[in-house]
Design a protein around this nucleic acid. Structure first.
Lengths: 239, 239
DNA sequence: TGTACATCAGTGAACGCGCGTTCACTGATGTAC
DNA sequence: TGTACATCAGTGAACGCGCGTTCACTGATGTAC
Protein backbone atom coordinates (compact mmCIF):
# COMPACT_ATOMS: atom_id res chain seq x y z
CA UNK A 1 0.00 0.00 0.00
CA UNK A 2 1.55 3.30 -1.09
CA UNK A 3 1.46 6.41 1.04
CA UNK A 4 -0.94 7.88 -1.49
CA UNK A 5 -3.38 5.00 -1.27
CA UNK A 6 -3.01 5.15 2.51
CA UNK A 7 -3.85 8.83 2.67
CA UNK A 8 -6.82 8.42 0.37
CA UNK A 9 -8.32 5.70 2.59
CA UNK A 10 -8.07 7.70 5.79
CA UNK A 11 -11.28 8.50 7.60
CA UNK A 12 -13.11 5.74 5.74
CA UNK A 13 -12.72 3.02 8.34
CA UNK A 14 -9.07 2.20 7.59
CA UNK A 15 -8.38 -0.51 10.19
CA UNK A 16 -4.76 0.67 10.45
CA UNK A 17 -5.87 4.01 11.87
CA UNK A 18 -4.11 5.01 15.05
CA UNK A 19 -6.06 5.79 18.27
CA UNK A 20 -5.40 9.54 18.31
CA UNK A 21 -6.37 9.90 14.67
CA UNK A 22 -9.28 12.35 14.30
CA UNK A 23 -10.41 10.32 11.29
CA UNK A 24 -13.65 11.97 10.37
CA UNK A 25 -11.83 15.24 9.64
CA UNK A 26 -10.58 13.49 6.50
CA UNK A 27 -7.61 15.84 6.50
CA UNK A 28 -4.78 16.22 8.99
CA UNK A 29 -2.23 18.92 9.36
CA UNK A 30 1.27 18.31 8.07
CA UNK A 31 2.48 18.01 11.66
CA UNK A 32 -0.10 15.34 12.45
CA UNK A 33 0.82 13.27 9.41
CA UNK A 34 4.48 13.65 10.21
CA UNK A 35 3.97 12.33 13.72
CA UNK A 36 1.79 9.49 12.44
CA UNK A 37 4.45 8.34 9.97
CA UNK A 38 7.15 8.50 12.60
CA UNK A 39 5.00 6.44 14.93
CA UNK A 40 4.27 3.96 12.12
CA UNK A 41 8.02 3.40 11.74
CA UNK A 42 8.44 2.90 15.49
CA UNK A 43 5.54 0.49 15.65
CA UNK A 44 6.79 -1.46 12.66
CA UNK A 45 10.10 -1.96 14.47
CA UNK A 46 8.40 -3.00 17.72
CA UNK A 47 6.17 -5.42 15.84
CA UNK A 48 9.12 -7.06 14.14
CA UNK A 49 11.00 -7.46 17.40
CA UNK A 50 7.89 -8.80 19.11
CA UNK A 51 7.73 -11.38 16.30
CA UNK A 52 11.24 -12.51 17.15
CA UNK A 53 13.59 -10.55 14.91
CA UNK A 54 16.64 -9.03 16.52
CA UNK A 55 17.17 -5.30 16.19
CA UNK A 56 20.35 -5.79 14.17
CA UNK A 57 18.60 -7.79 11.52
CA UNK A 58 15.79 -5.29 10.93
CA UNK A 59 16.42 -3.31 7.77
CA UNK A 60 15.52 0.27 7.15
CA UNK A 61 13.78 -0.78 3.94
CA UNK A 62 11.60 -3.36 5.70
CA UNK A 63 10.36 -0.71 8.13
CA UNK A 64 9.51 1.78 5.41
CA UNK A 65 7.70 -1.00 3.56
CA UNK A 66 5.64 -1.75 6.69
CA UNK A 67 4.97 1.95 7.25
CA UNK A 68 3.83 2.42 3.64
CA UNK A 69 6.47 4.93 2.64
CA UNK A 70 9.40 4.89 0.26
CA UNK A 71 12.84 4.01 1.76
CA UNK A 72 14.28 7.48 1.32
CA UNK A 73 11.45 9.04 3.35
CA UNK A 74 12.90 7.30 6.42
CA UNK A 75 15.49 10.08 6.61
CA UNK A 76 12.78 12.70 7.11
CA UNK A 77 12.31 11.15 10.57
CA UNK A 78 15.57 9.55 11.70
CA UNK A 79 19.19 10.08 10.69
CA UNK A 80 19.78 6.32 10.81
CA UNK A 81 18.66 3.13 12.50
CA UNK A 82 20.58 3.99 15.69
CA UNK A 83 18.41 7.03 16.18
CA UNK A 84 15.25 5.02 15.70
CA UNK A 85 16.60 2.47 18.20
CA UNK A 86 17.05 5.18 20.82
CA UNK A 87 13.48 6.31 20.19
CA UNK A 88 12.38 2.72 20.88
CA UNK A 89 14.35 2.67 24.14
CA UNK A 90 12.69 5.94 25.08
CA UNK A 91 9.19 4.80 24.32
CA UNK A 92 9.61 1.39 25.96
CA UNK A 93 11.11 2.83 29.12
CA UNK A 94 8.29 5.32 29.34
CA UNK A 95 5.91 2.35 29.48
CA UNK A 96 8.08 0.61 32.07
CA UNK A 97 8.27 3.71 34.26
CA UNK A 98 4.53 4.16 34.18
CA UNK A 99 4.21 0.64 35.51
CA UNK A 100 6.73 1.22 38.27
CA UNK A 101 5.11 4.49 39.33
CA UNK A 102 1.85 2.66 39.88
CA UNK A 103 3.52 -0.13 41.84
CA UNK A 104 5.28 2.41 44.03
CA UNK A 105 2.03 4.14 44.89
CA UNK A 106 1.07 1.14 47.04
CA UNK A 107 1.91 1.61 50.71
CA UNK A 108 2.40 -1.68 52.50
CA UNK A 109 4.69 -4.25 54.11
CA UNK A 110 6.67 -6.90 52.24
CA UNK A 111 3.89 -9.41 51.82
CA UNK A 112 1.30 -6.91 50.71
CA UNK A 113 3.64 -5.29 48.22
CA UNK A 114 4.48 -8.59 46.63
CA UNK A 115 0.98 -9.93 46.25
CA UNK A 116 -0.41 -6.52 45.31
CA UNK A 117 2.29 -5.95 42.68
CA UNK A 118 2.98 -9.16 40.84
CA UNK A 119 -0.46 -9.75 39.33
CA UNK A 120 -1.01 -6.19 38.07
CA UNK A 121 2.52 -6.11 36.71
CA UNK A 122 1.94 -9.41 34.98
CA UNK A 123 -1.20 -8.03 33.36
CA UNK A 124 0.65 -4.86 32.39
CA UNK A 125 3.46 -6.76 30.68
CA UNK A 126 0.95 -8.70 28.57
CA UNK A 127 -0.87 -5.46 27.73
CA UNK A 128 2.36 -3.81 26.56
CA UNK A 129 3.97 -6.87 25.07
CA UNK A 130 5.72 -4.98 22.30
CA UNK A 131 7.57 -2.63 24.65
CA UNK A 132 8.67 -5.32 27.07
CA UNK A 133 9.66 -7.67 24.25
CA UNK A 134 11.82 -4.90 22.88
CA UNK A 135 13.44 -4.27 26.27
CA UNK A 136 14.39 -7.87 26.97
CA UNK A 137 15.45 -8.58 23.38
CA UNK A 138 17.61 -5.52 22.94
CA UNK A 139 19.67 -6.31 26.05
CA UNK A 140 21.80 -8.59 23.89
CA UNK A 141 21.73 -6.58 20.70
CA UNK A 142 24.89 -6.25 18.67
CA UNK A 143 24.41 -2.49 18.61
CA UNK A 144 26.74 -0.98 21.25
CA UNK A 145 24.91 2.35 21.35
CA UNK A 146 21.57 0.75 22.14
CA UNK A 147 23.03 -1.72 24.58
CA UNK A 148 24.74 1.06 26.45
CA UNK A 149 21.61 3.23 26.55
CA UNK A 150 19.66 0.30 27.95
CA UNK A 151 22.25 -0.58 30.60
CA UNK A 152 22.25 3.00 31.84
CA UNK A 153 18.48 3.08 32.13
CA UNK A 154 18.39 -0.22 34.00
CA UNK A 155 21.09 0.93 36.40
CA UNK A 156 19.03 4.05 37.16
CA UNK A 157 15.96 1.93 37.85
CA UNK A 158 18.00 -0.29 40.17
CA UNK A 159 19.24 2.74 42.12
CA UNK A 160 15.72 4.07 42.44
CA UNK A 161 14.55 0.71 43.74
CA UNK A 162 17.43 0.66 46.24
CA UNK A 163 16.26 4.01 47.57
CA UNK A 164 12.66 2.82 47.79
CA UNK A 165 13.68 -0.21 49.80
CA UNK A 166 14.79 1.94 52.73
CA UNK A 167 11.08 2.34 53.53
CA UNK A 168 11.03 -1.22 54.84
CA UNK A 169 12.01 -2.56 58.27
CA UNK A 170 15.54 -4.04 58.46
CA UNK A 171 16.44 -2.62 55.06
CA UNK A 172 16.42 0.94 56.40
CA UNK A 173 19.59 -0.01 58.31
CA UNK A 174 21.43 -1.59 55.38
CA UNK A 175 24.49 -0.06 53.76
CA UNK A 176 23.90 1.50 50.36
CA UNK A 177 26.13 -1.17 48.76
CA UNK A 178 23.94 -3.91 50.18
CA UNK A 179 20.79 -2.08 49.12
CA UNK A 180 22.13 -2.03 45.56
CA UNK A 181 22.96 -5.71 45.92
CA UNK A 182 19.39 -6.68 46.81
CA UNK A 183 17.87 -4.21 44.33
CA UNK A 184 19.99 -5.78 41.60
CA UNK A 185 18.84 -9.24 42.64
CA UNK A 186 15.19 -8.17 42.56
CA UNK A 187 15.54 -6.38 39.22
CA UNK A 188 17.20 -9.39 37.61
CA UNK A 189 14.56 -11.73 39.00
CA UNK A 190 11.86 -9.50 37.55
CA UNK A 191 13.59 -9.31 34.16
CA UNK A 192 13.72 -13.10 34.07
CA UNK A 193 10.04 -13.18 34.95
CA UNK A 194 9.22 -10.76 32.14
CA UNK A 195 11.15 -13.00 29.75
CA UNK A 196 9.13 -16.00 30.93
CA UNK A 197 5.84 -14.11 30.55
CA UNK A 198 6.66 -13.15 26.97
CA UNK A 199 8.04 -16.58 26.17
CA UNK A 200 4.86 -18.44 27.13
CA UNK A 201 1.77 -18.06 24.91
CA UNK A 202 -0.36 -15.20 26.24
CA UNK A 203 -3.53 -17.26 25.82
CA UNK A 204 -2.21 -20.18 27.89
CA UNK A 205 -3.81 -19.05 31.14
CA UNK A 206 -2.44 -21.96 33.15
CA UNK A 207 1.18 -21.36 32.11
CA UNK A 208 0.81 -17.62 32.74
CA UNK A 209 -0.71 -18.27 36.17
CA UNK A 210 2.21 -20.58 36.99
CA UNK A 211 4.73 -17.90 36.02
CA UNK A 212 3.05 -15.32 38.26
CA UNK A 213 2.92 -17.79 41.17
CA UNK A 214 6.60 -18.66 40.82
CA UNK A 215 7.54 -14.97 40.60
CA UNK A 216 5.66 -14.26 43.82
CA UNK A 217 7.37 -17.14 45.58
CA UNK A 218 10.79 -16.04 44.40
CA UNK A 219 10.29 -12.51 45.66
CA UNK A 220 8.94 -13.85 48.94
CA UNK A 221 11.95 -16.14 49.35
CA UNK A 222 14.33 -13.23 48.79
CA UNK A 223 12.67 -10.97 51.35
CA UNK A 224 12.51 -13.86 53.86
CA UNK A 225 16.31 -13.74 53.97
CA UNK A 226 16.37 -10.03 54.77
CA UNK A 227 15.83 -10.17 58.58
CA UNK A 228 18.67 -12.70 58.95
CA UNK A 229 21.10 -10.88 56.71
CA UNK A 230 23.87 -9.00 58.45
CA UNK A 231 24.53 -5.99 56.23
CA UNK A 232 28.24 -5.25 55.77
CA UNK A 233 27.91 -1.82 57.37
CA UNK A 234 24.97 0.21 58.56
CA UNK A 235 26.41 3.44 57.18
CA UNK A 236 27.31 4.41 53.61
CA UNK A 237 30.75 2.89 52.84
CA UNK A 238 32.75 6.12 52.64
CA UNK A 239 31.06 8.04 55.49
CA UNK B 1 45.35 -14.78 4.16
CA UNK B 2 44.34 -17.53 1.73
CA UNK B 3 44.00 -21.16 2.73
CA UNK B 4 47.06 -21.86 0.61
CA UNK B 5 49.23 -19.28 2.38
CA UNK B 6 47.85 -20.56 5.66
CA UNK B 7 48.75 -24.15 4.94
CA UNK B 8 52.22 -23.18 3.80
CA UNK B 9 52.92 -21.35 7.05
CA UNK B 10 51.91 -24.26 9.24
CA UNK B 11 54.53 -25.79 11.49
CA UNK B 12 56.70 -22.70 11.21
CA UNK B 13 55.54 -20.90 14.32
CA UNK B 14 52.22 -19.75 12.91
CA UNK B 15 50.69 -17.99 15.96
CA UNK B 16 47.22 -19.09 14.86
CA UNK B 17 48.11 -22.74 15.38
CA UNK B 18 45.65 -24.65 17.51
CA UNK B 19 46.77 -26.46 20.71
CA UNK B 20 46.28 -30.01 19.44
CA UNK B 21 48.15 -29.27 16.21
CA UNK B 22 51.15 -31.60 15.87
CA UNK B 23 52.91 -28.78 14.02
CA UNK B 24 56.40 -30.16 13.47
CA UNK B 25 54.97 -32.97 11.29
CA UNK B 26 54.50 -30.30 8.60
CA UNK B 27 51.76 -32.42 7.09
CA UNK B 28 48.40 -33.42 8.52
CA UNK B 29 45.93 -35.99 7.37
CA UNK B 30 42.87 -34.88 5.44
CA UNK B 31 40.75 -35.62 8.52
CA UNK B 32 42.93 -33.42 10.71
CA UNK B 33 42.76 -30.51 8.30
CA UNK B 34 39.03 -30.96 7.95
CA UNK B 35 38.58 -30.76 11.72
CA UNK B 36 40.90 -27.76 11.95
CA UNK B 37 38.93 -25.82 9.33
CA UNK B 38 35.65 -26.64 11.00
CA UNK B 39 37.07 -25.45 14.31
CA UNK B 40 38.39 -22.29 12.66
CA UNK B 41 34.85 -21.49 11.51
CA UNK B 42 33.47 -22.10 14.99
CA UNK B 43 36.12 -19.96 16.61
CA UNK B 44 35.62 -17.17 14.10
CA UNK B 45 31.95 -17.09 15.06
CA UNK B 46 32.71 -17.13 18.80
CA UNK B 47 35.24 -14.35 18.36
CA UNK B 48 32.79 -12.16 16.51
CA UNK B 49 30.12 -12.66 19.15
CA UNK B 50 32.62 -11.99 21.91
CA UNK B 51 33.42 -8.74 20.14
CA UNK B 52 29.76 -7.76 20.35
CA UNK B 53 28.15 -8.88 17.10
CA UNK B 54 24.84 -10.68 17.35
CA UNK B 55 24.55 -14.13 15.82
CA UNK B 56 21.99 -12.92 13.28
CA UNK B 57 24.28 -10.29 11.90
CA UNK B 58 27.24 -12.61 11.34
CA UNK B 59 27.52 -13.52 7.67
CA UNK B 60 28.68 -16.82 6.28
CA UNK B 61 31.16 -14.94 4.10
CA UNK B 62 32.71 -13.10 7.04
CA UNK B 63 33.37 -16.40 8.81
CA UNK B 64 35.01 -18.01 5.78
CA UNK B 65 37.12 -14.87 5.38
CA UNK B 66 38.28 -15.18 9.00
CA UNK B 67 38.91 -18.90 8.61
CA UNK B 68 40.95 -18.32 5.46
CA UNK B 69 38.76 -20.30 3.08
CA UNK B 70 36.55 -19.44 0.15
CA UNK B 71 32.81 -18.89 0.90
CA UNK B 72 31.67 -22.03 -0.91
CA UNK B 73 33.94 -24.23 1.23
CA UNK B 74 31.67 -23.42 4.19
CA UNK B 75 29.23 -26.01 2.87
CA UNK B 76 31.82 -28.77 3.26
CA UNK B 77 31.31 -28.35 7.02
CA UNK B 78 27.82 -27.03 7.69
CA UNK B 79 24.60 -27.09 5.66
CA UNK B 80 23.85 -23.52 6.75
CA UNK B 81 24.36 -21.02 9.56
CA UNK B 82 21.73 -22.71 11.73
CA UNK B 83 23.81 -25.84 11.84
CA UNK B 84 26.91 -23.90 12.81
CA UNK B 85 24.88 -22.16 15.52
CA UNK B 86 23.87 -25.49 17.01
CA UNK B 87 27.54 -26.52 17.02
CA UNK B 88 28.27 -23.36 18.99
CA UNK B 89 25.54 -24.18 21.50
CA UNK B 90 27.04 -27.65 21.84
CA UNK B 91 30.57 -26.46 22.37
CA UNK B 92 29.62 -23.67 24.77
CA UNK B 93 27.42 -25.93 26.87
CA UNK B 94 30.21 -28.48 27.06
CA UNK B 95 32.34 -25.78 28.68
CA UNK B 96 29.52 -24.80 31.02
CA UNK B 97 28.90 -28.38 32.08
CA UNK B 98 32.57 -28.94 32.83
CA UNK B 99 32.39 -25.98 35.17
CA UNK B 100 29.27 -27.25 36.89
CA UNK B 101 30.70 -30.74 37.32
CA UNK B 102 33.64 -29.27 39.19
CA UNK B 103 31.41 -27.12 41.38
CA UNK B 104 29.25 -30.12 42.22
CA UNK B 105 32.27 -32.15 43.33
CA UNK B 106 32.50 -29.95 46.42
CA UNK B 107 30.80 -31.44 49.47
CA UNK B 108 29.73 -28.83 51.97
CA UNK B 109 27.00 -26.78 53.62
CA UNK B 110 25.45 -23.61 52.17
CA UNK B 111 28.14 -21.19 53.24
CA UNK B 112 31.03 -23.38 52.16
CA UNK B 113 29.46 -24.10 48.77
CA UNK B 114 28.93 -20.44 48.08
CA UNK B 115 32.35 -19.18 49.03
CA UNK B 116 34.09 -22.21 47.51
CA UNK B 117 32.19 -21.88 44.23
CA UNK B 118 31.82 -18.24 43.30
CA UNK B 119 35.51 -17.34 42.93
CA UNK B 120 36.51 -20.41 40.88
CA UNK B 121 33.43 -19.96 38.70
CA UNK B 122 34.30 -16.31 38.23
CA UNK B 123 37.82 -17.26 37.11
CA UNK B 124 36.42 -19.95 34.83
CA UNK B 125 34.04 -17.53 33.09
CA UNK B 126 36.93 -15.16 32.37
CA UNK B 127 39.04 -18.06 31.09
CA UNK B 128 36.29 -19.17 28.71
CA UNK B 129 34.98 -15.75 27.84
CA UNK B 130 34.06 -16.67 24.28
CA UNK B 131 31.77 -19.54 25.28
CA UNK B 132 29.99 -17.64 28.01
CA UNK B 133 29.67 -14.53 25.86
CA UNK B 134 28.03 -16.68 23.22
CA UNK B 135 25.62 -18.21 25.74
CA UNK B 136 24.40 -14.94 27.21
CA UNK B 137 24.24 -13.17 23.84
CA UNK B 138 22.39 -15.87 21.97
CA UNK B 139 19.58 -15.94 24.54
CA UNK B 140 17.98 -13.06 22.67
CA UNK B 141 18.95 -14.03 19.15
CA UNK B 142 16.42 -13.64 16.38
CA UNK B 143 17.05 -17.25 15.35
CA UNK B 144 14.18 -19.37 16.74
CA UNK B 145 16.06 -22.64 16.32
CA UNK B 146 19.02 -21.48 18.38
CA UNK B 147 16.88 -19.77 20.98
CA UNK B 148 14.86 -22.93 21.45
CA UNK B 149 17.94 -25.14 21.71
CA UNK B 150 19.36 -22.84 24.36
CA UNK B 151 16.15 -22.67 26.40
CA UNK B 152 15.99 -26.45 26.48
CA UNK B 153 19.57 -26.76 27.70
CA UNK B 154 19.04 -24.16 30.40
CA UNK B 155 15.87 -25.87 31.59
CA UNK B 156 17.79 -29.14 31.90
CA UNK B 157 20.49 -27.43 33.95
CA UNK B 158 17.84 -25.94 36.21
CA UNK B 159 16.27 -29.36 36.79
CA UNK B 160 19.65 -30.84 37.61
CA UNK B 161 20.30 -28.08 40.09
CA UNK B 162 16.87 -28.65 41.67
CA UNK B 163 17.81 -32.29 42.22
CA UNK B 164 21.18 -31.35 43.67
CA UNK B 165 19.56 -29.02 46.15
CA UNK B 166 17.84 -31.89 47.95
CA UNK B 167 21.24 -32.64 49.52
CA UNK B 168 20.79 -29.62 51.78
CA UNK B 169 18.92 -29.33 55.08
CA UNK B 170 15.39 -27.84 54.79
CA UNK B 171 15.47 -28.16 50.99
CA UNK B 172 15.27 -31.95 51.19
CA UNK B 173 11.69 -31.50 52.42
CA UNK B 174 10.59 -29.07 49.72
CA UNK B 175 8.11 -29.92 47.00
CA UNK B 176 9.60 -30.41 43.56
CA UNK B 177 7.76 -27.34 42.28
CA UNK B 178 9.39 -25.21 44.97
CA UNK B 179 12.78 -26.77 44.25
CA UNK B 180 12.39 -25.70 40.62
CA UNK B 181 11.35 -22.27 41.83
CA UNK B 182 14.54 -21.75 43.84
CA UNK B 183 16.75 -23.43 41.21
CA UNK B 184 15.32 -21.04 38.63
CA UNK B 185 16.03 -18.09 40.90
CA UNK B 186 19.62 -19.24 41.45
CA UNK B 187 20.22 -19.93 37.75
CA UNK B 188 18.89 -16.52 36.75
CA UNK B 189 21.00 -14.81 39.38
CA UNK B 190 24.06 -16.62 38.09
CA UNK B 191 23.27 -15.73 34.46
CA UNK B 192 23.01 -12.08 35.46
CA UNK B 193 26.35 -12.42 37.24
CA UNK B 194 27.95 -13.92 34.15
CA UNK B 195 26.61 -10.99 32.11
CA UNK B 196 28.15 -8.56 34.60
CA UNK B 197 31.49 -10.38 34.53
CA UNK B 198 31.65 -10.21 30.75
CA UNK B 199 30.38 -6.65 30.68
CA UNK B 200 33.15 -5.27 32.91
CA UNK B 201 36.70 -5.09 31.55
CA UNK B 202 38.53 -8.30 32.47
CA UNK B 203 41.62 -6.34 33.53
CA UNK B 204 39.70 -4.11 35.94
CA UNK B 205 40.47 -6.21 39.03
CA UNK B 206 38.50 -3.96 41.36
CA UNK B 207 35.31 -4.09 39.30
CA UNK B 208 35.64 -7.85 38.89
CA UNK B 209 36.21 -8.30 42.61
CA UNK B 210 33.11 -6.24 43.30
CA UNK B 211 31.01 -8.41 40.98
CA UNK B 212 32.15 -11.60 42.71
CA UNK B 213 31.45 -10.11 46.14
CA UNK B 214 27.96 -9.02 45.14
CA UNK B 215 27.25 -12.45 43.61
CA UNK B 216 28.27 -14.14 46.86
CA UNK B 217 26.06 -11.85 48.89
CA UNK B 218 23.10 -12.42 46.60
CA UNK B 219 23.39 -16.19 46.84
CA UNK B 220 23.81 -15.93 50.59
CA UNK B 221 20.70 -13.75 50.88
CA UNK B 222 18.67 -16.27 48.91
CA UNK B 223 19.70 -19.25 51.02
CA UNK B 224 19.09 -17.25 54.22
CA UNK B 225 15.43 -17.24 53.32
CA UNK B 226 15.29 -21.01 52.94
CA UNK B 227 14.84 -22.01 56.62
CA UNK B 228 11.92 -19.60 56.99
CA UNK B 229 10.21 -20.57 53.76
CA UNK B 230 7.16 -22.79 54.12
CA UNK B 231 7.21 -24.98 51.02
CA UNK B 232 3.77 -25.43 49.44
CA UNK B 233 3.84 -29.20 50.02
CA UNK B 234 6.48 -31.60 51.26
CA UNK B 235 5.55 -34.21 48.65
CA UNK B 236 5.55 -34.05 44.87
CA UNK B 237 2.40 -32.13 43.75
CA UNK B 238 0.45 -35.08 42.28
CA UNK B 239 1.45 -37.79 44.83
C1' DT C 1 57.08 -50.53 -3.03
C1' DG C 2 54.64 -48.60 -7.27
C1' DT C 3 50.57 -47.60 -10.01
C1' DA C 4 45.78 -46.38 -11.08
C1' DC C 5 41.76 -44.66 -9.46
C1' DA C 6 38.43 -42.55 -5.93
C1' DT C 7 37.58 -39.28 -2.64
C1' DC C 8 36.87 -34.82 -1.20
C1' DA C 9 38.41 -30.07 0.96
C1' DG C 10 38.96 -26.16 -1.12
C1' DT C 11 38.62 -22.99 -5.63
C1' DG C 12 36.78 -19.21 -8.41
C1' DA C 13 33.46 -17.35 -11.58
C1' DA C 14 28.89 -16.19 -11.72
C1' DC C 15 23.99 -15.28 -10.40
C1' DG C 16 20.24 -12.56 -8.59
C1' DC C 17 18.82 -10.02 -4.43
C1' DG C 18 18.01 -6.72 -0.78
C1' DC C 19 20.53 -3.45 1.32
C1' DG C 20 21.74 1.85 2.73
C1' DT C 21 22.29 6.06 0.72
C1' DT C 22 22.55 9.97 -3.11
C1' DC C 23 19.99 13.01 -5.71
C1' DA C 24 16.82 15.96 -8.14
C1' DC C 25 11.93 15.99 -8.08
C1' DT C 26 6.73 16.79 -6.90
C1' DG C 27 2.84 18.50 -5.03
C1' DA C 28 0.17 19.36 -0.94
C1' DT C 29 0.22 22.24 3.22
C1' DG C 30 1.43 26.45 5.51
C1' DT C 31 2.29 31.49 5.65
C1' DA C 32 2.82 36.45 4.54
C1' DC C 33 0.61 40.06 2.39
C1' DT D 1 -10.86 36.22 1.03
C1' DG D 2 -7.30 35.61 -2.73
C1' DT D 3 -2.60 35.35 -4.43
C1' DA D 4 2.36 34.35 -4.43
C1' DC D 5 5.85 32.05 -2.39
C1' DA D 6 8.24 28.87 1.08
C1' DT D 7 8.33 24.71 3.36
C1' DC D 8 8.81 19.98 3.53
C1' DA D 9 6.97 14.88 3.68
C1' DG D 10 7.17 11.79 0.45
C1' DT D 11 8.80 10.10 -4.53
C1' DG D 12 11.46 7.26 -7.73
C1' DA D 13 15.59 6.30 -10.32
C1' DA D 14 20.06 5.08 -9.61
C1' DC D 15 24.48 3.62 -7.36
C1' DG D 16 27.73 0.33 -5.52
C1' DC D 17 28.09 -3.39 -2.11
C1' DG D 18 28.04 -7.67 0.45
C1' DC D 19 25.20 -11.31 0.73
C1' DG D 20 23.91 -16.73 0.13
C1' DT D 21 24.06 -20.13 -3.13
C1' DT D 22 24.96 -22.70 -7.88
C1' DC D 23 28.24 -24.91 -10.50
C1' DA D 24 32.06 -27.15 -12.78
C1' DC D 25 36.77 -27.38 -11.42
C1' DT D 26 41.48 -28.75 -9.23
C1' DG D 27 44.81 -31.08 -7.00
C1' DA D 28 46.36 -33.24 -2.83
C1' DT D 29 45.32 -37.22 0.13
C1' DG D 30 43.70 -41.88 0.67
C1' DT D 31 43.01 -46.67 -0.96
C1' DA D 32 42.96 -51.05 -3.60
C1' DC D 33 45.80 -53.94 -6.07
Amino acid sequence: MSAHARRRSEGSGDPGRRPGDPGRAGRRTQGERRRATRQALIEAALLRMEAGESFDSISLRSLTRDAGIVPTAFYRHFANMDELGLALVDESFRTLRTMLRRARAEEAGYEQVISASVRPLHRYVLDHREHFAFLVRVRSTGNPLLRHALRIEIRVLTSELATDLTRFPHLCDWSSADLMMIADLLVNAMISTVEAILDAPAEDAEAQEEIATVAEKQLRLIVLGVPNYRSGSSRPPRA
